[in-house]
Simulated assay, not measured.
Amino acid sequence: MEWTGARYSDTPTIEVRTWIDAPPEKVWALVSDIELMPEMSEELRSVAWLDGAHGPAVGARFVGRSEHEAFGKWETTSYVIECEPESVLAWAVQDPAEPSAVWRFRLRPENGGTELSQWMQLGPGRSGLSVAIDRMPDKEQKIVFVRLREFEQSITATLAQIKQRAEA
C-alpha cells in the first residue's frame, strides 16, 4: 500500500497490491466486469454501462450509484481512459479533463499468477469531499486522510474478493 499527498489540491493517491494465483486473463475477466463491482464494495450500489456499451473500451461511459453514511447517496458518470485487456483498466470520474477521481487496475504476470494493483487519485476536480473541505478548511488534511483510509480499506477488501473469485 502506498499513499501520496495530504491536501486535496495535491491530488493524493493510494495504491494497494495483491498477488493472485490465477492467470491475467482470468483476473481481467473479473476487473473488467464493472457491473460485478457493487458486490465487492461497501459504497458502490450499482453500475451500468451507458450509450449501448457492453464492456470497457477507451471512451466508454458508465454510471455508478454510491452511498456513504457521511456523504449520503450520489451518482457519477465515469469515462474509460485506459483499456488494455489483461493489463490496465482506468476511468475518470465526472469530467475526464478535470476528474473528481481517477481509478486504475493494473495486472502483471508474476510467478505463474498475476500481480493486481488498484490505484486511485482524488481530484483535481471537485467532489463530495470538496464540500466537506469547504465547510471545514482547517480540517482539510484530516478529511483527506480519513477518506484515503476508507479507500485503502475498501480497495484491500475488493482485491481480496477478486483474488478469492479468481482462485476459486
Rank of each mutant, 00 (worst) to 15 (best):
M1A: 15
E2S: 13
T4F: 05
P12T: 06
I14W: 03
E15V: 06
V16I: 14
T18F: 06
D21F: 07
D21L: 11
A22M: 00
P23H: 02
P23I: 03
K26Q: 10
S32G: 02
E35N: 07
M37N: 02
S41Q: 04
L44I: 01
S46E: 15
A48R: 15
A48P: 05
W49C: 04
L50K: 14
G52P: 09
H54W: 02
G55M: 04
P56S: 05
V58P: 15
V58S: 10
F62L: 07
V63F: 01
S66T: 00
E67I: 00
H68C: 07
H68S: 10
E69G: 12
A70Q: 13
K73T: 12
W74R: 00
W74V: 02
W74T: 02
E75H: 08
Y79H: 15
I81C: 10
L89S: 05
A90Y: 04
V93T: 13
V93G: 07
Q94F: 06
D95P: 11
D95T: 11
E98V: 14
P99C: 11
P99G: 08
S100Q: 07
V102D: 04
R108E: 14
E110V: 12
N111G: 15
N111F: 11
G112S: 01
G113A: 09
T114R: 04
T114V: 05
L116I: 10
Q121I: 07
L122H: 08
G125D: 12
R126A: 14
G128C: 03
A132F: 11
I133E: 08
P137K: 06
K139E: 14
K139W: 08
K139G: 09
E140C: 09
Q141S: 11
V144P: 10
Q153D: 09
A160D: 14
I162F: 10
K163C: 01
K163L: 03
A166V: 00
A166P: 02
A168V: 09
